[in-house]
Design a protein around this nucleic acid. Structure first.
Length: 283
DNA sequence: TCGCAGGTGGTCG
DNA sequence: CGACCACCTGCG
């Protein structure tokens, strides 16, 4: 099997990357590695920390199994955002912000994935007013029932999400076993819209989709459209912004303004560190 | 049993 | 335009 090794990756940790709320399709294995699918590929990733005691556990070699060099360069390198200097981002964010220092220390290995646009739209429409195990279940059901096989790993077949055409061809009845609840209608409407008008290219087109409000739109912008100043605010972000910065939990607008003024272009990265921090604290 | 979970659309005033 | 509130579903 093809295997690709990336040496000396910095500011990286798989559990931080895959457990900071941006993706739902990576599964932790017994050996600590993660298997998952994205961009119609199935791979297994393992991160081996450097053995020198001085090295932090966020520096090491990334082993990607079921991956050619070409796939790494074309798909996984951009997907994992490996060309960006997260050390620099963390230094900037924590320079004059003590509480952010605490948050960053907690999620040192976070990276913002560059995910497929359609998959991100579907995932975050499903995510609304929902809990993570159920979100994962819905996405899994949808893929297995209506998606195409993306590949195999360790004897198991993985399926990719059905595309907009496939989804638009289905009825609410077809989708009932997926257990999407009232989000079924959102997904069908959105699939039809994308078939007619194409994938959204900016925030306005994104917000025109059914089931896409400000929070979901910001997630899509941040996780698949490279708009790194996006600052999605959900219940957890409202909590952490209230706890750390004293902004009223109901004042989402005030939080947006605060993020713009204090985090600027790095708002999305700040959001990830804060989100991971508050989730860890409540684990 | 009932509240709640990574919000949004619809409906009021 | 801002403040409510119903909403599928499954779990504790």
């Amino acid at each position: 099997m093809d295997e690709y090794i990336v040496k000396n990756v910095k500011d990286f940790r798989l559990d931080h990357v895959f457990d900071c709320g941006q993706c739902f399709r990576w599964e932790k294995q017994a050996d600590g590695s993660y298997t998952g699918t994205a961009m119609d590929r199935v791979v297994n990733m393992q991160f081996v920390c450097g053995d020198r005691a001085s090295e932090p556990e966020t520096t090491g070699d990334l082993i990607i199994k079921n991956c050619t060099e070409e796939d790494f360069l074309q798909i996984w390198k951009p997907y994992l955002d490996l060309d960006r200097d997260y050390g620099e981002i963390k230094r900037t964010l924590t320079a004059d912000d003590l509480v952010m220092g605490e948050a960053v220390a907690c999620g040192q290995g976070i990276r913002i994935l560059k995910q497929d646009l359609w998959e991100t739209i579907v995932s975050f429409i499903i995510s609304q007013n929902n809990n993570i195990p159920r979100i994962k279940g819905c996405i899994e059901n949808l893929s297995q029932m209506f998606g195409l096989p993306a590949g195999e790993y360790a004897g198991r077949t993985y399926y990719s999400l059905p595309g907009p055409q496939k989804l638009a061809s289905l009825t609410a009845e077809d989708l009932a076993p997926v257990r999407l609840g009232y989000r079924t209608r959102y997904l069908l409407e959105t699939a039809k819209m994308v078939c007619e008008k194409g994938l959204p290219e900016d925030e306005v087109q994104l917000s025109a989709l059914c089931g896409v409000g400000p929070k979901v739109a910001n997630c899509i912008l941040l996780f698949s459209m490279a708009k790194y100043d996006s600052f999605p605010i959900d219940v957890w972000m409202a909590r952490v912004m209230s706890q750390l910065y004293g902004i009223d939990e109901g004042d989402h607008k005030g939080m947006c303004t605060y993020a713009q003024e204090h985090f600027g272009q790095l708002g999305g990265f700040a959001q990830q560190y804060l989100f991971y921090y508050i989730r860890e604290k409540n684990r």
